[in-house]
Amino acid sequence: MPALIRAEFRKIFTTNLWWAMLIPVVVLAFCAGWLGTAFVGLIDMIEQFQATLPLGLLSVSLSTNIGTIFALLFGAMSFAGEYRNNTITATYLTANPRGAVLAAKLTACGVVGLTYGLANVLFASLGALLGAGPGLANFGRIGDWLSVGGAGVLSMLLWALLGVGFGALVTNAVLVVIAPLVYKFVIEFTVSISVMETTLSGIGPYLPAAAGNGIVSNLAVPLFVSAVAGPDEPNTPRGAFELLHLFFGGTYDHPWWLSLLTFACYAAAFVAGAWFVGRRRDIA
């Protein structure tokens, strides 16, 4: 097993895919952090708050929910790319059982997913510092920042693992790129809008992308409101939460741990499906 894991790392780091996906994660994270400048400017203009707002928490949430798609694409392409390049035959013939190959890929891609998560948190925080001004107050209490950052790293890891399972199931290198983008930004968005104000509205937070976004957003938004409102948080209008969730993801009054559990179940289902199908699939 260690030899298989080393082989997977060798495959990853001798190709351009891992850093090609890391670049947009870093750039988008920094830009999301920098957006704090616009919020600070607006708040200073209306002079509504006296203290520096912990906008860094929301920046990490925003950057994570954008960047996770690249972790998914990396995980999916790491498996589907083997079918495209016809290297999967040698991989399966030299490794037995096939489940060990899947486990090795999950391990290697999981480490890369963790790397993406750490880079995302660090560059989003850097962008927030440079955009909104220096000072730890921009991130609230250190415990809050660590909690949101940790949730962001965990979210990136789970998206990468789901991507591995998805890539192993689909195997088509073009489809594993197009399908997640179409689903996340078209299909699920359409479904979410369609069920609003209906008896099915409760399913929204349990859809895959919504659950993935909620891992960080359903933690960051309440922490942000708590830091701003202080003792008056219970009296904060629901509309304030919903407005923040609209921009930064997540769902009002839906716990982050439930989003984590829901998305982990999706990831486990894809991995289980990949194991079941992969051990029976013919190879050329």
Rank of each mutant, 00 (worst) to 15 (best):
W18Y: 02
L161W: 02
I23F: 13
L62P: 03
D253F: 05
V174N: 02
W256Y: 15
P222F: 10
F247V: 12
K184H: 11
V195E: 03
I69Q: 01
G249I: 03
P97W: 05
W34N: 15
V186P: 08
L157R: 01
I178S: 10
M21E: 06
G67H: 03
G273A: 07
V40M: 07
T199C: 12
H254W: 01
A71D: 01
P208W: 07
L175P: 13
Y252W: 10
N86R: 09
N213E: 06
V177G: 15
V228Y: 02
A211P: 01
T14L: 11
I215W: 05
A103L: 12
G127L: 04
G167I: 03
W275V: 01
I142T: 14
L162N: 00
L200P: 08
V221Q: 01
V221G: 01
P205L: 01
L157D: 02
S59V: 15
L244S: 10
A173H: 13
V40K: 12
G249S: 05
P97M: 07
N138P: 07
L57P: 15
I283H: 03
A284K: 05
A95N: 13
A103H: 08
A220T: 02
P237S: 11
P97R: 14
F263Q: 15
T199W: 15
Q48V: 09
N218E: 04
F13Y: 12
W275S: 01
L157K: 03
D232E: 14
F39P: 07
V27K: 06
S125Y: 03
V26L: 00
L42S: 10
V216Q: 09
F9G: 14
A220S: 11
G278D: 02
L22D: 00
A227C: 09
A209M: 06
V182P: 10
W257V: 00
V101K: 08
A108D: 15
F9R: 06
G113N: 02
F30K: 02
A51L: 13
M77S: 12
V170S: 08
R6S: 06
S194T: 15
V153E: 13
A103F: 02
T236P: 13
M1L: 12
A268Q: 15
R141Y: 13
A95M: 14
G239Y: 04
G150V: 05
V174T: 10
A124Y: 11
A210W: 00
I187G: 14
G113E: 05
P134S: 07
I203L: 00
L175S: 11
N138Q: 08
P24Q: 15
T15P: 11
C109F: 06
G150Q: 03
T37Y: 10
R84A: 05
